[in-house]
Design a protein around this nucleic acid. Sequence first.
DNA 1: CTAATGTGAGTGAGCGTTCACTATAAATAA
DNA 2: TTATTTATAGTGAACGCTCACTCACATTAG
Lengths: 192, 192
Amino acid sequence: MPRKAKDASATRELIQGTALRLFVEKGVTETTIRDLASAAGIAEGTLYRHYVSKDELVHDLFQTNYGAFGRKLRDVQQAHGAFPDKLAAMIETICQFYDSDPICFRFLLLAQHQALPRIDTGADNPVQVLHNVIAEAMERGEITARDPDLATGFVLGLLLQPAVLMVYGRLTPPFAALAPEITAACWRVLNP
Amino acid sequence: MPRKAKDASATRELIQGTALRLFVEKGVTETTIRDLASAAGIAEGTLYRHYVSKDELVHDLFQTNYGAFGRKLRDVQQAHGAFPDKLAAMIETICQFYDSDPICFRFLLLAQHQALPRIDTGADNPVQVLHNVIAEAMERGEITARDPDLATGFVLGLLLQPAVLMVYGRLTPPFAALAPEITAACWRVLNP
DNA sequence: CTAATGTGAGTGAGCGTTCACTATAAATAA
DNA sequence: TTATTTATAGTGAACGCTCACTCACATTAG
């Protein structure tokens, strides 16, 4: 069984990193295979040794990173017992994710709309994780009972809209500096 | 001065309505001129009697509706004195806009990201109107003083994220039914 | 008649993708 | 060790197709 020649996984990572950057900079549709290949310093055909199509590249990039983030969020949530701790830890994690890898964060933010129909709504979906934590807290009476979807929307909005403002330079990094204020805002909204 | 032959303005409105619908259904880039012409029941060339390019059509559609909505929001805001009244009226207006013309609302929601670099940041920008009202309320001491951009982000998130959930069918229309709850949430976040 | 409006086959640029070929490194043979 | 085979990875010109856009002509209103 032969192993590998000319480090294929390194090339794959190069493609992934370059694609993520260009997709965020110019948009997915607006980024051509030629753009991508020349920015990565590879031939167009090389890309097709690693992905069957541009579509598959986009989908893989989304699925992989969205899933990994969802799993991280699930772990963080499970490491805490009471809802206020869960919420604070999740918000902290999300803010730190933005700071540590803003390109990946922005890609997930913009790709979720076009990719949403193809997303499996499994347990690795970050939005689902947040939804479950909120719904559970309602059942326990830790927060005001209301439509869990609306409550999730509130928390999501309180988090994502400031993130968008940060992307457009209206707020100054690091995003984690806002975590306490965002957490406080969520807490006020969720309680009577 | 000749007036018009074969009602040009009617054709223009037909193009605008059809474009708005298709852009929301399939996305701007994914909607071709052929799609648009055939859906509107006109020839491709006809479109170019009214718009110099697809890009100009998109930009005109955005600018016109974004500006009109901004002006409406400004008027609503000016019709009230105290901040709580202004806020409630603006939220009510936004929710009713969604209910009365969801396609237009959704177009502005999705087009704002790709169109943002070209938007003039004048007084007709709805986000700017909201920002000004919040900043003014802070100066008057009607709400907690903090970064006005962050506060605007909070209110925007509390409004827009539920709108997105409604688009994806996670919340049930009418959106205006949620206005009181959204207003209450904003009020909790903005106050100490 | 004249000018505005509508038409749709035609155009060329640019797109994602392919494929015959080369380059490299591991596996095997000598 | 050295030579040979084999499989994987990389290449870029070429391909078929779709796109936004054009233009010579037809239709209609004033």
